[in-house]
Design a protein around this nucleic acid. Structure first.
Length: 271
DNA sequence: CCGGACGCCTGTCGGC
DNA sequence: TGCCGACAGGCGTCCG
């Protein structure tokens, strides 16, 4: 589930139910996610009020006076708000219990997600410190990508998926953005002109924004017990469409491997 | 510094 | 029907 749009949708979805709530209890059913959930989590959070729900890249930040809790959803994580008792299912690893009896519940079958205590200056935490700019923020753009890519021989797709360059561009949106910008995914990042990086930056912003705008459906999902696949499937032009005609030129979409990930692209449109 | 590979996990799907 | 391998939306870490 979690690409940037889905994390942002999750943030927007839980914020009204979590902001201003006092944490009165923590239940950890499975300590070992990507890293162990801190053993003293309940000690740190109990009695604290959630003052803010922010996002940095694909990390969610629950801010309290005592410090900030980082949540990462990995490949398969999701959060839901419970307003009445619901028995936990096998992959429901963590509940934060609030003073009004509601709960925030983390589910993550593959356990690539993470729950980390970041202290009172989360931006200087190791996991956040070296992250690149937000793609929807003012520090990101064609000039920035051009500047950072000089003398880099790495493929442009892997370049834009590097969170030290720009956060939040996962496999799906990397493929989609490169198609929209008509850039071949294997092209060395350092060989791309400023003009084309301007186009790519616009494409990245556009695909992410459009997906966030569609996120309303997911917002309903994670509060129901449902949890079905996703809103974005309909509007993908290349991702997962190996063998089907390119929507621009009708040439069959190709699939290659880049750094152990699948890449989908049009060999005619993207050069 | 850079780039490539690895490993952490479970669930699903297609082919035989 | 059942089994098996391939593959899946991420990313920190290690190694050359």
């Amino acid at each position: 589930m979690p690409e940037l749009p889905e994390v942002e949708t999750t943030r927007q979805g839980i914020a009204p139910f979590v902001t201003g709530k006092q944490v009165t209890g923590v239940i950890v059913r499975r300590h070992q996610l990507r890293w162990p959930i801190p053993a003293d989590l309940e000690l740190r959070l109990s009695g604290q009020t959630i003052e803010s729900v922010r996002r940095r890249g694909k990390y969610l930040l629950l801010g309290t006076r005592a410090g900030t809790l980082l949540l990462h959803l990995g490949m398969s994580g999701s959060l839901r708000i419970l307003t009445r008792t619901q028995p936990p299912e096998p992959h429901d690893h963590l509940d934060l219990i609030f003073g009004d009896g509601s709960r925030l519940r983390l589910r993550d079958p593959r356990r690539f997600g993470a729950v980390v205590w970041a202290g009172t200056e989360p931006e200087s935490h190791k996991l956040l410190r070296d992250l690149g700019p937000e793609p929807l923020g003012g520090d990101f753009g064609g000039e920035y990508l051009y500047h950072r890519s000089r003398s880099r021989r790495i493929a442009v797709k892997q370049f834009i998926m590097n969170s030290a360059i720009v956060v939040g561009v996962g496999n799906i949106y990397a493929c989609e953005s490169l198609h929209l910008a008509a850039i071949h995914p294997a092209r060395p990042a350092g060989n791309i002109s400023l003009e084309r990086y301007r186009k790519l930056a616009r494409a990245i912003r556009q695909t992410l924004q459009q997906a966030i705008a569609c996120g309303g459906t997911t917002l309903r999902d994670f509060r129901d017990s449902g949890g079905h696949p996703g809103y974005f499937q309909q509007q993908l032009n290349v991702y997962g469409r190996h063998g089907t005609p390119c929507p621009i030129c009708r040439t069959p979409i190709r699939r290659i491997r880049q750094g152990q990930r699948s890449t989908f692209y049009c060999g005619r449109c993207q050069r």
